[in-house]
Design a binder for these strands. Structure first.
Lengths: 204, 204
DNA sequence: GTCTATAGGCCGATAGAC
DNA sequence: GTCTATCGGCCTATAGAC
């Protein structure tokens, strides 16, 4: 080992390829993106592309797997004071706004579409996205329940129900590209109504 | 007009093409299916295929549009007696089982994936699927409310919340192909819990 | 309308020079 | 590692016989 040679993973060309491929695959999906298009967008030759990635399949799987391992959960759950309703409103608002971001919607579309041919990607997305978020939220709910501010026996199910109500029609429409895009008022109203139902069912 | 000549739409070859193309497109998506594969599966030549459909795009749009115009809602809402809870359990169970069918999941995947390139398909799916089901269910909820068996001010939102809770994690997992496939016990438990939350929030 | 045969192009992947 | 140039194949779509 010479010790100072840059590793393959850090080469600038590889970064260019990863960035370009991520943008294209996430925006357009597997089938609609050619290796020529990726090489052109990354400003490298196709041969360089194949020097770094064995095949189009391997490149796609690497890109999407990495996209699934970051930025798929919507932030922290810390410090929401003693007001459970206010905390739910804040958490719900952040969650729904995250789910409605273009990038999150696009990744969801691509992974769902290709989960048949690339089952590992469906699993990676599920574990790092919905399951992690739900698990964290369920933990928060359990803490609230232990503190006597909620009354529930199955925190994970309650978390899933809350997220399900949040998504409602706004997310379904956005995921299918059906206008109008949800506006702030619709998002706030959806969150507020979900919190209301949740507290009527699980509040003390 | 000779009067007895079979119309193009009724030709047996066309039926073969539509059936084969529907099966392939719904199962594998737009990009993964070639016109050769459709012709072979339909037992016709490619030239015949192009005699009936201008292009692959047009064939795909026709197939998916038709798939969106039928079999995307889960049945009728009639005659559920006076017991609101029992009715919700029955409706919820039918709805969730319908959403978990292979065909419904596959159409959802294909439409969501191609809704960027074929915006009309996203809209057709949304209108004929979720929106129609939600609207019908909201009407049923309103009737229950008018009869004094529920207390809610926004039937459509309540319908969306109920459907959102139904989907929960079982549907998310199934749509991404993540094992284990939901079993009957999980489905029943999900429905029962959603009905419980719904009635605590909106029951009388 | 339906077929066989093929045009014409783009695709994924590679050879070989440097 | 990176390039230019190219291969072989599959793709969409069509020409022409019947």
């Amino acid at each position: 080992m010479s010790g100072t040679a840059p590793r393959l993973e850090d080469s600038p060309k590889r970064t260019q390829i990863m960035d370009a491929a991520a943008a294209l695959f996430i925006a357009q999906g597997y089938g609609a993106v050619s290796m020529d298009a990726i090489a052109k967008a990354a400003a490298v030759s196709k041969a360089t592309l194949y020097a770094h990635f064995r095949s189009k399949d391997a490149l796609f799987a690497t890109i999407i797997r990495e996209a699934c391992q970051s930025n798929l959960t919507f932030g922290a759950f810390e410090t929401h004071g003693a007001d459970t309703r206010a905390a739910l409103l804040e958490l719900g608002g952040r969650m729904l706004r995250f789910l409605l971001e273009d990038r999150a919607l696009a990744i969801h579309r691509v992974v769902m579409a290709e989960s048949v041919r690339f089952p590992e990607l469906g699993r990676a997305f599920y574990e790092n996205g919905p399951r992690t978020s739900c698990g964290l939220f369920a933990g928060w709910l359990k803490a609230q329940a232990d503190a006597g501010r909620l009354r529930l026996s199955d925190p994970l199910r309650a978390a899933e129900q809350f997220f399900g109500m949040l998504k409602g029609s706004a997310w379904g429409r956005a995921a299918l590209g059906v206008p109008p895009a949800p506006n702030e008022a619709e998002i706030d109203a959806t969150v507020a109504s979900a919190v209301e139902v949740f507290l009527r069912a699980y509040g003390t």
